[in-house]
Write a protein that binds this DNA or RNA. Structure first.
Lengths: 344, 344
DNA sequence: CGATTCCATGGAATCGATTACACAGTTTTC
DNA sequence: GAAAACTGTGTAATCGATTCCATGGAATCG
């Protein structure tokens, strides 16, 4: 096994373990002689410092944790990648945890991270099902423990926690304006779960975009999904049988869009002809689709970077302002004039 | 801060820290009285054991690490998800690391995990560029350290390390047979980088499938990519200008396929009409494509589970046999008869 | 030149848990 | 009924690093 400790290194280098430690952690008060000797010996013996012992004493781990709600959602894996790269550049490791859109798994991961004494946490938070704005018990303990914490993508509004979010209001206004221009007035919305702040933000941005374009908001055209593919499929079926037969639809995230598009394909619905589709999240599948799906996208790379930067500020004792990124609307061939408009 | 230690708990419960520890870690030699008292006090104080101190003494962390080569590749995020769920069921945490198809990042993650003394490692290994079969320096140290190690998806053939891989020979034979039936004889292969064993396996399986179907293997129709989208795009352009104008192509992974399909779409190539396409990895984008792409897919969920099981055996001192899963070929509309066959 | 500051170093305490060992009291065994 | 085995507990050692403190020697200062 790897039984080589700092004492072995110190012994072989003819110094005390204190000096060895100082050399290995770059403490200035060391002589050139011992610096060289210790470094050489450590390399030769293949010394790997025990991170547990180190951080037990020093109370820092150079590690942050990132909790996302679904690893298999490309949206979040992009975020994870950005956070990891940025943290890496700052000399910190990132532990990536997966909440699976489930409060219990979220809490287990948070407990594990608290127990491992990570230096900070970046969390895509999940509210409780009963009370979306209240943090889960473990989240409350995290907050109480004083561990630096930053929310990203989603927030819990009642908490005074720095957050990095995206605003889709502008993008949705553009999107709805475009639909209106094409003759659409009956527009459905396949939304996400209320316990996610992004779901609420997207829904209310949709409503205000409708209003801003002088279109009426019809609650009967709102479907409550859960951000997962199956609920998107359910939403698509619901829409197929809907008495109002809307001519356009906005979908709140990529997995739901994929579920819905699969159903529509099987039902022989021609996207862009019979139904205009706009989805959140610009992922490969949206671009590969025929026709390509119009999207409202966030700059996950920037958001990930900003989250790490904000977390570093929190760790330094500051409290950075909440930061809001602006989403972008990209029109693609999934939009077309309504039959009525074409026929006119 | 969270300054509540086991001593605080012991004091408040009126027992020694030894007894408190025994209660909290489920040691049998405890009285019902102290069990209740300690448990109650621990809960009330919100005691979170310090994982560093615990594993420093006990030399176990109940944590495994999973190193994948690209978090943003859905293929690997499926694998990560499966490993995580299985490890979770076995009471272990999983640290997910991203090598980014880069030997240096791989080594940094491995060093961090070694230093954190994880109980075991599941690795999608990356060989050296110069010598694909040789493990990187850090990998050698992992092996030398005796840390339980299992390879998944890829292997390093010279090492006696348990591995979970997939064999695509059968699936490719089926695939090529189907292509032949449709009249294709000139079939290109967009392959992966030689330092990945999967790339070599897929390439040689392709060659033998060609041979098994009595088709000649033409090295001029083999393109060497790197498993990333840009190289797939490069491969697609290379193919467009190729003097032999092959009528079908097999692509070695999903990101490359996405890169290639994007180029072909821009070039106005009609997939399934002018060019038949088969890709490895059944990801959403392949199914959303018009027409849907025929795929050769692996059962990542089973492979992930098998990897955790194998790792547990290694941790128990056994040395499980290498396990090979069989890939599956699914024909879709991206395959069509050649013009010649149609014209005849 | 004596006093002060600075440097590099070693000894020992420390972080917070687990666990070997000792011990007292109880139960079982022959 | 004495010896052996078992139970629950506390004391103290331990894991492997970092870091406080003391120390001796060199450099600096007035």
């Amino acid at each position: 096994m790897n039984a080589v400790t700092i004492k072995d290194v110190a012994l072989a280098a003819g110094v005390s373990s204190a000096t060895a430690s100082r050399v290995l952690s770059g403490h200035p008060a060391t002589s050139a002689a011992s610096r060289e000797k210790v470094a050489a010996v450590a390399k030769e013996l293949g010394f790997v410092p025990n991170a547990q012992a180190r951080s037990l004493r020093s109370t820092k781990t150079d590690t942050i944790a990132l909790l996302i709600s679904d690893v298999r959602n490309p949206y979040f894996s992009d975020l994870a990648h950005a956070v990891e790269q940025q943290a890496h550049a700052a000399g910190m490791m990132t532990f990536i945890g997966n909440a699976n859109e489930d409060t219990e798994q979220q809490d287990q991961f948070l407990a594990a991270m608290l127990s491992r004494r990570v230096d900070g946490l970046i969390v895509v938070p999940q509210g409780l099902d009963e009370d979306a704005d209240r943090p889960s018990p473990m989240m409350q303990r995290i907050i109480a423990s004083g561990t630096p914490l930053v929310f990203v993508d989603r927030t819990l509004p009642e908490q005074r926690i720095p957050s990095i979010t995206a605003s889709s209001t502008g993008a949705l206004e553009e999107a709805i304006a475009q639909l209106k221009l094409l003759g659409h007035t009956s527009i459905a919305f396949l939304g996400g779960p209320d316990h996610a702040s992004t779901a609420r933000e997207r829904h209310s941005a949709f409503d205000s975009a409708m209003a801003a374009n002088g279109l009426s908001i019809n609650p009967a055209l709102h479907f409550a999904g859960d951000f997962r593919a199956a609920s998107g499929a359910g939403g698509a079926r619901w829409l197929l049988e809907h008495e109002l037969q809307p001519t356009a639809v906005v979908i709140a995230d990529a997995p739901m869009a994929i579920g819905a598009l699969t159903v529509w394909r099987e039902a022989g619905i021609r996207i862009g002809k019979q139904l205009s589709v706009i989805s959140f999240d610009e992922v490969d599948a949206m671009l590969m689709h025929d026709p390509p799906i119009s999207t409202i996208s966030h700059d996950l790379t920037s958001m990930g970077r900003a989250a790490v930067t904000a977390l570093q500020e929190v760790m330094a004792g500051k409290s950075p302002e909440p930061q809001e990124f602006i989403s972008r609307f990209t029109a693609r061939e999934s939009l077309a004039p309504t039959q009525a408009a074409t026929g006119a």
